[in-house]
Design a protein around this nucleic acid. Structure first.
Length: 322
DNA sequence: ACCTGTCAAGTCTGG
DNA sequence: CCAGACTTGACAGGT
């Protein structure tokens, strides 16, 4: 099994390279010259995109070819105060530069819209905001010139006291998404509400790939093991031009098992690899640790000497079970 | 330079 | 029914 590792949005290694700089809504509202205030937002967005490209170059330098973009590249976009503002065409050049770099170096990228994007919601206003947010994310990928291998990952959402009815509503609302959005969607099990088995059922019903989060599964499951779900999870990736991907993180502590630790606990990850390696030719693993790329680098060190793991580049390994 | 409190969002819980 | 917790990285304002 060939395993490629990636990380999320920001670097703890490269300083002054945040791709998520912002302005608070109150600070925006305080500015008297609205045009100047909007231009300031666009300048912040340009810096975020410039930092994103810097991080991609940093990634290339370390042979990291799997990366999740920040979902806060454009400050305050979608806020009521900025209705009618369409910054994506104005940022066409930096978006295109990012896309060109990604294509040139064969990188895998995507977004994970914030958990305020909720397709299971019963509230029409929340649904409309959510669909608009997904649309903006897809437009950014389109502006980068990236095809449908670049995807969005979301959770199913809240349960609202009735999982069965909520799931029906989720499926209905998901199916109403425009095709260009639906074709880029992936669904991920969450740590409180919809388990891996439930999320998998939704993925199968919708024909959407499933992102398994092994930490979420550990703290929220219905007794199923990952090993028994994995063949079906793999099947949701058939016909996609990208390998299956998972999220990996470790609990902060026994008292606080849901929070993400600074680094990834290697034995748990390796135990998972052992269970799935023989049926999985390729796997992309998104590291979700507080130390971001710093945790990825430490993981690569910690994997040295692990039985079955053989380094295959700066941020990838070949893993086999004896 | 550093520290503490605040900010955004939607959902859920406690009162 | 409403206030607060949850989560996250960064702003904002103080020293």
């Amino acid at each position: 099994m060939f395993v490629r590792f990636g990380y999320v949005a920001m670097s703890t290694v490269v300083s002054k390279a945040s791709p998520s700089q912002t302005m608070t809504a109150t600070a925006f509202a305080r500015l008297e010259d609205r045009d100047a205030a909007v231009r300031k937002l666009e300048r912040i967005a340009e810096q975020n995109l410039a930092n994103t490209l810097r991080l991609l170059k940093h990634n290339l330098g370390h042979d990291i070819r799997f990366y999740r973009f920040s979902s806060r590249l454009i400050p305050l976009v979608g806020h009521e105060m900025l209705a009618g503002w369409d910054p994506i065409p104005r940022l066409a050049e930096p978006f295109a530069a990012i896309g060109a770099f990604v294509r040139e170096h064969g990188m895998r990228v995507g977004f994970h819209p914030d958990h305020f994007t909720v397709l299971s919601t019963p509230r029409p206003d929340v649904l409309a905001h959510s669909v608009a947010d997904l649309d903006r994310h897809v437009r950014m990928l389109e502006s980068m010139g990236l095809d449908e291998r670049a995807k969005l990952n979301v959770h199913i959402g809240g349960a609202y006291g009735d999982k069965t009815r909520t799931m029906e509503r989720f499926l209905r609302q998901f199916e109403a998404l425009p095709e260009r959005i639906r074709n880029r969607m992936m669904l991920e099990n969450d740590d409180k509400t919809f388990t891996a088995a439930e999320t998998l059922a939704a993925c199968e019903a919708l024909g959407v790939p499933m992102v398994l989060d092994i930490h979420h599964h550990a703290v929220n499951h219905g007794g199923e093991s990952v090993a028994e779900l994995w063949p079906r999870i793999l099947a949701t990736w058939e016909g996609q031009d990208v390998p299956p991907k998972i999220h990996a993180s470790s609990p902060r502590s026994e008292q606080d098992p849901r929070s993400h630790a600074d680094y990834v606990h290697v034995p748990d990850l390796v135990a998972f690899f052992r269970e799935i390696a023989e049926m999985t030719p390729e796997l992309d693993v998104m590291i979700e640790a507080k130390m971001k790329d710093g945790a990825l680098f430490k993981l690569m060190e910690d994997l040295e000497g692990v039985e079955g793991a053989e380094k295959a580049g700066g941020a990838s390994i070949r893993f086999s079970v004896k």
